[in-house]
């Protein structure tokens, strides 16, 4: 594999590590969404890297665009859920991982 690809791979692994670490450690619901976003950025980077490595950049672009659209909609829905939780339980946005028992 080329050097650039290896560098990208390292970047992706680091992003995943950041996202997962943050997901495990945080107690704030919005931060959970942010961590998931970071993970998504990692995957996007990975896709670009793979597109570069196989020479099929155009395909990779199509995938990236699709992923971005999908993730945005899912994020909107998740924000809606958080909004609902906020309305239910007052103005606290924290929860205890792993069981958000109300």
């Amino acid at each position: 594999m080329s050097l650039l690809f290896a560098l990208f791979l390292i970047g992706v692994i680091l992003l995943f590590a950041i996202g997962i670490y943050s997901l495990l450690v945080t107690t704030n619901l919005i931060r959970v969404l942010v961590s998931i976003e970071v993970l998504t950025k990692g995957v996007t980077l990975m896709l670009i890297a793979v597109g570069y490595a196989t020479g099929q950049m155009a395909q990779a672009e199509a995938y990236v665009i699709t992923i971005i659209v999908i993730e945005v909609i899912l994020l909107a829905i998740a924000t809606g859920i958080v909004l609902g939780l906020y309305r239910e339980s007052g103005d606290i946005l924290t929860h205890d991982i792993p069981t958000p028992k109300e």
Partner: peptide, 22 residues
């Protein structure tokens, strides 16, 4: 129906589902 328990269950599902997706 936007009740507390339901929302919490949905959010937990979302979290794990997002990790699975990645």
């Amino acid at each position: 129906n936007k009740r507390g328990q339901e929302l919490a269950g949905a959010f937990k599902y979302y979290m794990l589902s997002a990790v699975a997706t990645v």
